[in-house]
């Protein structure tokens, strides 16, 4: 088995758009590895997703242009990737995003290649060629450091929005287009895909500023003030789990372990206690401000600035001077 001194990243895209997690993975791998970072992109024949990917500085993009495969199921994509590895050699590492798609294809390919896979990594680093993987377990209560010493590729899925992306032109970028990759079809599944209605609210995962509401700000007046503050800050509203009972919020707005992981520059927490299931979703926020009536609230430990008192009065005062 030839092992290529390369890091491969599976580029996720849906609706003919790159998923930003791919940019994040490129930036991270460029930061931690001296070896080439190669993006594996499956796309429709007339798509040009490589253009935007190239802005993040990978060393190489292999585009597999194939309309059927672009709509392929997990088994078909596994078949195609296994054939690509047969042709090119085994990369030292193979990274997938820890999305529904990545978490479905990666383990199937892992079993095909009989190698190791670590799910949902929060951090990655190298010791020579060995990829050291940090993975949460027990609902983010325990962190494990995992390695795959004797098998290649070293496979991981990495959680979205944990690493930040950075645009960086790579003058040595190579783009290789493959149009004749063979793969076995799967006749068992017929898949009909519908685009989900575009969310009217801004996507909280991408938001630069977030105003988050907890049970201490669950009243109508409190929500109204928070909305005013949100508008002044050009922010997006997020909530803790108790607020998803209300008609206006759902799981897409929920921050935390069973909701979204966010990475804003500024997060303002109003009436949130700071349960671990919530704070696991905010560890990548840069500046955290929290208001809570309880001087001993857990959330203050995670906050750069905190206000002890009524969150609505604080939000109102802040809104007034912005």
């Amino acid at each position: 088995m030839t092992v290529l001194k390369e890091n491969w990243i599976f580029a996720e895209n849906d609706l003919q758009k790159n998923n930003p997690v791919t940019y994040q993975l490129i930036t991270k791998m460029k930061q931690i590895s001296h070896d080439p970072v190669v993006v594996i992109l499956i796309e429709e024949i007339d798509a040009k997703l490589e253009n935007e990917l190239s802005e993040y500085g990978p060393d190489k993009i292999i585009t597999i242009k194939d309309n059927d495969l672009a709509d392929g199921d997990d088994l078909e994509i596994t078949n195609a990737l296994a054939n690509l590895i047969d042709q090119k050699g085994t990369p030292n590492t193979l990274i997938f995003p820890a999305t529904v798609v990545g978490r479905s294809i990666a383990p199937r390919l892992q079993a095909r290649l009989r190698t190791g896979l670590t799910a949902d990594c929060l951090d990655l680093k190298f010791e020579d060629d060995l990829l050291v993987q940090t993975k949460p377990s027990y609902g983010d209560n325990i962190m494990c450091e995992i390695v795959i010493p004797n098998h290649r590729p070293q496979m991981v899925t990495a959680r979205p929005n944990v690493f930040s992306s950075e645009k960086k032109i790579n003058p040595n970028l190579k783009i290789e287009s493959i149009s004749d990759l063979q793969w076995k079809k799967d006749d068992q599944l017929v898949i009909e895909s519908h685009v989900l209605p575009v969310k009217t609210t801004k996507d909280i995962k991408q938001a630069k500023r977030v105003v988050a509401l907890g049970r201490g700000s669950k009243t109508e007046p409190a929500i109204n003030v928070a909305n005013d503050l949100k508008n002044k800050l050009h922010a997006t509203i997020g909530v803790t789990r108790p607020l998803t009972d209300l008609d206006e919020f759902n799981i897409d707005d929920q921050i935390g372990q069973s909701g979204q992981t966010i990475a804003p520059d500024l997060l303002v927490n109003l009436g949130i206690s700071g349960a671990v299931q919530y704070t696991s979703g905010i560890s990548n926020a840069k500046i955290i401000v929290s208001a809570n009536t309880d001087a001993n609230a857990q959330i203050f430990k995670y906050s750069d600035y905190f206000f002890v008192g009524n969150a609505t009065e604080f939000a109102k005062a802040l809104e007034a001077i912005l």
Partner: peptide
């Protein structure tokens, strides 16, 4: 193929927690 090298509890974020004034407007 995978080996768990070590386990730990998540590192506590070491933030400087600055308390703002108790008066909301000043804060």
């Amino acid at each position: 193929p995978t080996i768990v090298r070590s386990i730990s509890e998540p590192v506590e974020v070491t933030k400087i927690n600055t308390r703002l004034s108790d008066d909301p407007v000043t804060a």
